[in-house]
Simulated assay, not measured.
Amino acid sequence: MADLVGRASDEARGVPADLLEGYLTVLAKVSAGGRLCPDELRRRRDIGARAAERNVPMRGVVDLYLSATWLAWPSLPGVREATGADALRRIGEAVFRAADATITAVAEGYEEAQRWSLRQEESFRREFVDDLLDGRNVETLVGRAERYGLRLAGSYVVIVAAGPQPFVDGGPMTRQVESIVSLGPASRDVLVTTRDGLLVCIVPDLHGTVEEFVTRVMESLRPDGAWRLGIGRPQRGPGGAVRSFEQARQALHIGQRLQLPGQVHRASDLLVYQVLIRDRSALADLVEVVLEPIRKARTGPGTLLHTLAAYYAADRVATVAARELHVGVRTVTYRLDRVEELTGYSVHDPQQSFTLQVAVLGAQLLGWPEGS
């Protein structure tokens, strides 16, 4: 029997023979009229799990069991003692049913171990991503990052993307971006994940790498125009990812709130807005003091606020603002005069106009008046 086990391992190209563990004894018993008991099937599931833990390919395990079955067949006691074709046929049916049930049990154990390993790996990865983007357990991040191809001693840039639907781990858009990124030269050093419905990409700050990555992501998301990218500033060290992530997320928020042109917003280009939003309490006070009076407008504050935003976006040219708003120039000038009547701030006075513009930006960033 030991010789048969060794030959089966050779036939299966070296799959460990100990994974058979008593299988030939079971076949011998079945061939002599015995039955396959539930305990034996549980044992096979455990062996399947063991094979998965040892990274033995499933096809190799199946090959091992099938090879052992046909090699053992001539020497099984029931086969040797069979008299007549009918008896041999019944024994063959019993043996191959037992082999089928055994291999199925091994496969079930193997698959369950793989699912558990995958869930555990996903849990480890999620925990690492959360620690990385929250700045927790910084002292262990460097060692854990190497498992995912990141070298946190270097400088990295975090890019976040928002779309019409939340991004989720394993979702189709997430997989599509991962697939495209894997084709790049620096793919090993890029981590693609999700956080709070955003697609998050951690990219090494190497010459041309960030630009190439942004181009690839844009190509991936281009079929749907309702998405935006936020790009943080390069940051170094284990704590750098969380800083760049917050900058990227804030750049995305500013681009969405202010409806800035384009779909890519870089934190380095939006520093003035970040200064404004850093002290939310002071910004809210400014908005309240300057713009609260326009709530008294007959049409509500929305129309006047929208007109002010269009006027400043048009570089204070009323004709351009009117074209953008699809109204006449006189309507725009009337609304601007109405703002002055209600607030006391004129768009024609440089200092007052600057205060108005900052208040309008603050209202957009804070979601005023809806968010007030």
Rank of each mutant, 00 (worst) to 15 (best):
E211Q: 12
V203K: 04
D189P: 00
V190C: 08
F167H: 06
A248N: 02
R236G: 08
I231Y: 07
D224A: 11
D169K: 11
E219I: 01
A186S: 14
L191P: 08
L191I: 03
V217S: 04
S244A: 13
P238M: 05
V217T: 12
G225R: 14
A226E: 14
G230Y: 08
S244I: 06
A241R: 07
Q235H: 15
D196A: 15
T194I: 03
F213R: 09
G240H: 09
D169M: 09
V168K: 10
P185N: 04
D169F: 07
C201R: 01
Q176V: 00
R188S: 15
L221G: 05
P204K: 06
I202E: 11
W227K: 03
F213I: 05
P223Q: 04
Q235A: 14
V190R: 04
T174L: 02
G184Y: 05
V242H: 13
Q247D: 14
G237N: 14
L221A: 11
V192P: 02
W227F: 15
S187K: 12
A241K: 12
R236I: 11
D224W: 12
L229S: 02
P185Y: 06
V200K: 08
P172D: 08
V190Q: 07
E212V: 01
V200D: 06
V242E: 12
A241F: 03
P172A: 09
L229T: 02
V192C: 14
V217C: 09
A186I: 02
E212H: 01
A226M: 01
L183E: 15
P238N: 08
P223G: 02
G225F: 09
G197T: 10
R222N: 05
R222S: 14
P223T: 05
L198C: 00
P172K: 03
T215K: 14
W227N: 02
H207C: 01
G230F: 12
